Amino acid sequence: DDWEIHFNNITIRLHGVSEEQIEELKELIKNGAHEEELRKWAEEVNR
């Protein structure tokens, strides 16, 4: 699925990401992940 997530003036566009991966991302954000951590997560997902 395609997703677009907005938070802290950042837009993250995701393509072909599962519901499970979105839940992981929500947890990262909820736990106060920094932009660098989110980038690493996105790189892993996009492999």
Rank of each mutant, 00 (worst) to 15 (best):
N46L: 15
L25Y: 07
E19K: 13
E44R: 06
L28G: 00
I29F: 04
E4S: 08
Q21Y: 08
T11E: 06
V17R: 01
G16N: 14
N9E: 10
H6V: 11
I29G: 00
E27K: 10
H6G: 04
N8R: 08
H6S: 11
F7Q: 02
N31R: 12
H34S: 15
I5P: 03
E35R: 05
Q21R: 08
I22M: 10
S18P: 03
E36W: 09
I10D: 07
N31V: 04
W3E: 02
L28T: 00
G32V: 01
E24Q: 11
F7W: 10
N8W: 07
L14Y: 04
I10K: 05
L14N: 01
N8P: 08
E23D: 12
K26F: 14
S18Y: 05
H34R: 12
F7D: 01
D1M: 15
S18V: 03
N8V: 09
R47I: 15
K30T: 05
N31I: 06
E37W: 02
K40E: 08
R13S: 13
E24S: 10
D2T: 15
D2C: 15
K40Y: 05
E20R: 12
H15T: 08
E4R: 06
L28D: 00
N9H: 09
W41M: 01
F7C: 14
E44A: 06
E20W: 10
E36D: 13
L38W: 02
G32A: 02
E36I: 07
I5V: 09
E19G: 09
I22N: 01
I5E: 03
I29W: 03
H6N: 10
W41K: 01
N31C: 12
E19S: 12
K40H: 09
T11L: 12
L38T: 00
I29A: 02
E44D: 11
D1E: 13
H15E: 08
R13P: 10
R39C: 10
N9A: 10
E37F: 05
E36M: 07
A42L: 15
L14D: 01
A42E: 10
E4G: 04
G16V: 06
E43N: 04
R13V: 13
S18W: 02
D1C: 15
E36A: 09
G32K: 02
G32F: 03
E36F: 06
H34Y: 04
I12C: 04
I5A: 07
N9W: 07
D2P: 09
E4Q: 07
V45F: 13
S18G: 05
I29L: 11
W3G: 02
V45W: 10
L28E: 00
S18F: 04
R39E: 07
E4F: 13
E24K: 11
E36V: 06
E37A: 09
L14R: 00
H6K: 13
K30M: 11
T11G: 08
E36C: 09
R13T: 13
E19C: 13
F7S: 03
E35M: 07
E20L: 10
L14E: 01
A33D: 01
E27L: 13
E24I: 09
E37N: 03
G32L: 01
N9V: 10
N46D: 14
E23T: 11
A42R: 02
L38M: 03
V17G: 03
L28S: 00
W3V: 10
F7R: 01
I5D: 02
S18N: 07
K26G: 04
I10L: 12
Q21W: 06
E20Q: 14
I29Q: 01
D2M: 14
H34V: 11
E24P: 01
F7N: 01
G16A: 09
E20S: 14
I10G: 09
E19R: 15
E44W: 03
L28P: 00
H6C: 12
R47C: 13
L28N: 00
N31A: 13
E43W: 04
T11Q: 04
V45G: 01
R13H: 14
E24D: 06
E37H: 05
G16K: 14
N31Q: 11
F7V: 14
E37M: 08
E23Y: 09
H34D: 15
A33G: 03
L14K: 01
R47E: 15
G32R: 02
R13Q: 09
I5R: 04
K40D: 04
E23N: 13
E44H: 10
E27D: 11
G32W: 01
V17P: 13
D1L: 15
R13D: 12
H34Q: 14
K40W: 05
N31M: 10
G16L: 10
S18K: 07
R47W: 14
E43H: 05
E36K: 08
R39N: 05
G32P: 00
K26N: 10
E27G: 07
V17A: 13
E23Q: 12
E4L: 09
A33Q: 01
K40R: 14
I29V: 07
T11W: 06
W3I: 12
E24V: 12
D2L: 13
K30V: 07
R47M: 15
D2E: 14
K40L: 12
L14F: 07
N8T: 09
L14T: 03
S18C: 04
L28K: 04
F7M: 11
G16S: 12
F7P: 01
N46F: 15
A42T: 05
Q21N: 05
L38N: 00
E35F: 10
Q21E: 06
R39D: 03
L14A: 03
K30G: 04
V17M: 07
H15K: 10
I29C: 12
E19A: 12
I22F: 09
E36N: 09
N31L: 06
W3A: 03
V17Q: 02
N8F: 06
E19T: 11
H34K: 13
N9Q: 08
H15C: 05
E20Y: 07
G32I: 01
L38Y: 03
E37C: 03
E4A: 09
E19F: 13
W41T: 00
D2R: 11
V17F: 07
A42I: 15
R39P: 00
N8A: 11
E20D: 07
K40V: 07
W41A: 02
V17T: 02
N46T: 07
K30N: 08
K26E: 06
E20K: 11
H34E: 13
W41Y: 04
E43I: 06
W41H: 01
L28Y: 03
E43Y: 06
G32H: 09
E27V: 09
E24Y: 08
A42C: 12
I5N: 02
I29D: 00
E35S: 05
T11S: 09
K30A: 12
A33V: 08
V45A: 15
V45R: 02
E27P: 00
H15G: 04
I5F: 14
K26M: 14
N46Y: 11
A42M: 13
L38R: 00
E43D: 11
N8D: 11
N31P: 00
H6Y: 10
I5M: 08
H34F: 04
W3N: 03
E35A: 08
E37G: 03
I10W: 04
E24N: 06
E24C: 02
H34C: 09
R39F: 11
D2V: 14
E44V: 03
I12H: 06
H6E: 09
W3Y: 15
N46S: 07
D2K: 11
D1V: 15
F7I: 14
D2F: 15
E24M: 09
L38I: 15
D1N: 13
L25F: 13
K26S: 06
A42F: 15
E4H: 14
G32D: 03
K26I: 11
I22K: 09
G16E: 08
E37Y: 05
L25E: 00
E19N: 12
W41G: 00
N9L: 12
N46G: 03
E43F: 04
D1T: 14
V45E: 03
L38P: 00
D2A: 08
E27T: 12
K30I: 06
L14W: 06
N9M: 14
K30W: 07
I22R: 06
E27N: 12
V45P: 01
E37P: 01
H6Q: 10
G16C: 15
E35I: 14
R47A: 15
E36G: 06
D1S: 14
A42Q: 07
T11F: 13
A42S: 06
E4M: 09
E4C: 07
E36H: 08
R13K: 14
I10R: 02
E37L: 05
W41N: 00
E44M: 04
K26Y: 14
K26V: 09
W3L: 08
E43G: 02
N8Q: 12
L25D: 00
K40T: 06
Q21M: 09
R39A: 11
E44S: 05
H15W: 14
W41C: 02
A33K: 02
W3S: 03
H34W: 03
N9R: 06
I12M: 05
G16D: 10
I12A: 04
R39Q: 14
H15R: 07
H15I: 10
N31K: 10
E44F: 03
R47V: 15
Q21D: 07
F7Y: 11
E35K: 05
R39M: 14
I22G: 03
I22T: 04
E24A: 11
E4Y: 14
F7G: 01
E27M: 14
H34L: 10
E19P: 13
D2H: 13
E19W: 13
L38S: 00
K40Q: 11
I12W: 01
L25V: 04
I22A: 08
A33E: 03
L38G: 00
W3T: 05
I29N: 00
E43A: 07
N9C: 13
R13L: 14
E24F: 08
N9I: 09
E20A: 13
L14I: 09
Q21I: 14
L28M: 08
S18H: 07
I22V: 08
E20F: 08
I12T: 02
N46A: 14
W41L: 01
T11K: 06
R47N: 15
K40P: 00
E36P: 05
W3P: 03
K30D: 04
H15L: 07
H6L: 10
E20N: 09
W41D: 00
L38H: 00
K30F: 05
E44I: 04
K26W: 14
E43C: 04
